[in-house]
Simulated assay, not measured.
Amino acid sequence: MIRNDDSQNVNLANIENYITRSTIRQFLLQIWSAEMIATKYRYFVEILNNGNRIYLERPGRLNKGCDFVIYIENQFLWGNGNDRPPAHEFIFNDLNSKKQILNTQEWSSLLNAIEVIFNCGNYNDTLPYTSNLPNIGLEYELLLKLLRWFFIEQDLTYWSGTGREMLYQGILNV
């Protein structure tokens, strides 16, 4: 459940309109540079097929200017029922579970889908890789759209581009 607070709710335009790291970063920074001082924001950035949303809250806990926290509506919850942000560990644990069950060809197909997201590709371009995979753990849509925002988070935190690559290498090493 989305925490009830005084955050300003904003629906962001489809991120898939921006197809490079640079244009994604420029788009977000332009939006964020227009924020009102001392105001909390909640940006709804993805709608999943089940109706739940991925959203960002700003400012983030680290208060580094571009920091944000990623949430998935009704997916990971605190004891009080409020949404809890997923950690990279959730992704790695899910990928480990998938790797244990998927055969080599299926695992390769999932890695191809992740590569599309890593390269700022459109989520729909991942469907040929995931549509016939068995359902294990997190839904593929959730996994890939969450990874998109983890990659974007890394791009904004590590301007030199190393964060995105570190996360991707971690995924490849699962």
Rank of each mutant, 00 (worst) to 15 (best):
I136T: 09
N11W: 00
L102R: 05
E57R: 15
N173Y: 11
R21P: 10
W78F: 13
T23C: 10
R61K: 15
N49C: 04
Y123D: 02
G81V: 04
R3V: 10
L127D: 06
I101Y: 05
G137E: 05
E57K: 15
K64D: 07
Q26D: 14
G79K: 13
Y158E: 09
D155H: 09
R25L: 09
I101Q: 11
N63Y: 13
I136A: 08
F151L: 07
E115G: 03
N17Q: 12
W32I: 04
I70F: 04
Q26G: 06
F44V: 00
L167W: 06
L167T: 12
I31K: 14
L172S: 12
N82S: 08
P59H: 09
A113C: 08
L144A: 04
R53Y: 00
F150D: 02
L143K: 01
I72M: 06
N4D: 13
L127E: 12
S97F: 02
F150Q: 07
P59T: 10
I152P: 02
I70Q: 02
S131H: 13
A87P: 03
S160K: 12
L56G: 01
I24L: 07
F68N: 05
S131T: 11
N103F: 05
K99D: 06
P128I: 14
L102G: 08
D67M: 11
N132P: 03
D125P: 04
Q30D: 14
E165I: 14
N122D: 15
R164Q: 13
V116E: 01
C120W: 12
P85Q: 06
N119Q: 13
N93H: 05
E106V: 03
Y55A: 01
W159A: 14
E73S: 02
R21K: 14
M36L: 05
L56S: 06
P134V: 09
V69G: 11
E106T: 05
R61H: 14
T130Q: 06
L127G: 06
Q26K: 12
L111D: 02
V69W: 04
N14S: 12
R21F: 07
Q26V: 10
L143N: 00
F27K: 10
I72L: 10
F150R: 09
I152V: 15
N93W: 00
Y18V: 04
P128Y: 12
I19T: 13
N52F: 01
E89A: 11
I117W: 02
F76M: 06
K64P: 00
R42A: 01
Q154N: 08
N173A: 15
V174G: 08
F76V: 04
N82K: 05
F76Y: 14
P86Q: 02
A34I: 00
F76E: 05
